[in-house]
Computed example of a mutant assay.
Amino acid sequence: MKFRALLALAGAALLAGCGLNSVPTAEENAKAKWADVQAAYQRRADTIPALVNTVKGAAASEGKILTDVVEARAKATSVQITANDLTDPNKVAAFQAAQNQFGGSIGRLIASVEAYPQLQSQATFKTLMDQVEGSNNRITIAVRDYNTAVQAYNTRIRTFPDAIGAKIFYGAKPIVPFQAQAGAEKMPDVSFGNSN
């Protein structure tokens, strides 16, 4: 009887060291962090257009850029990705591309505001710029936290002893980290004068 009890204890210890609990915990953490990324993007998508509508009247000459922001927002919110899609690089890339287009539209809006100092004096533009900055900071933090969780999960499913449980019990696949768009490392051109 003692031998069986010791054998059962040894078996439980071996299984506990094989990722039975740690692999799904790490995977769920990465999925939760992905939800935070989506929430940050959704907050930006919800907040910025409302502010854009507020400043539209004061920026009739910049209507094209504002329209681009609204259209890019619509596209950014139409591309959805679920936690189950995180192992599909194409779906993650499509989501990132839509978000990058929205971010580029916002960047053009800010550049036009800087080019016309009389628009900067309006409180609505300052509020818009503050919200854009705050939204982008939230996104940066959410993406960083997501990538940290993905790294922890991907490391866990590839290292001993958790790799055993990850492979045998869960068929675990690496999760795709969020990546910056190509060329993001370059400093953007900012001009305060006329481009003529």
Rank of each mutant, 00 (worst) to 15 (best):
112 S>T: 13
91 K>E: 02
136 N>E: 15
28 E>C: 13
146 Y>G: 04
60 A>I: 04
53 N>P: 06
63 G>F: 02
46 D>A: 11
148 T>F: 10
186 K>P: 10
133 E>N: 13
115 A>H: 01
118 Q>P: 04
25 T>L: 11
119 L>T: 00
108 R>H: 12
145 D>R: 07
189 D>N: 15
158 R>D: 12
4 R>P: 05
98 A>I: 03
15 L>G: 03
34 W>V: 05
188 P>L: 05
88 D>Q: 11
172 A>W: 05
26 A>C: 10
162 D>H: 02
72 A>E: 03
98 A>V: 03
134 G>T: 07
78 S>C: 01
103 G>F: 00
90 N>D: 12
59 A>G: 01
113 V>I: 09
170 Y>N: 02
152 A>F: 11
49 P>F: 03
30 A>I: 05
133 E>F: 11
153 Y>A: 03
63 G>Q: 14
82 T>R: 12
148 T>W: 00
128 L>W: 01
138 R>M: 14
3 F>E: 13
157 I>Y: 04
117 P>I: 09
107 G>F: 04
137 N>R: 09
190 V>H: 01
165 G>E: 00
164 I>W: 01
132 V>N: 06
72 A>D: 01
9 L>H: 03
110 I>C: 01
80 Q>E: 09
154 N>Q: 06
148 T>Q: 15
128 L>Y: 01
115 A>P: 01
30 A>S: 08
162 D>M: 06
135 S>Q: 01
22 S>W: 05
49 P>R: 03
169 F>K: 05
160 F>Y: 10
80 Q>D: 09
38 Q>Y: 09
34 W>N: 01
133 E>W: 07
153 Y>H: 04
119 L>M: 10
172 A>H: 02
153 Y>E: 06
79 V>M: 05
17 G>W: 01
6 L>M: 12
60 A>T: 14
75 K>V: 09
51 L>G: 13
134 G>H: 02
158 R>G: 15
108 R>K: 12
147 N>I: 10
174 P>M: 13
33 K>L: 04
167 K>Q: 13
13 A>I: 13
170 Y>C: 07
89 P>D: 08
185 E>K: 15
6 L>D: 07
34 W>K: 08
144 R>C: 06
57 G>E: 05
13 A>M: 15
137 N>D: 15
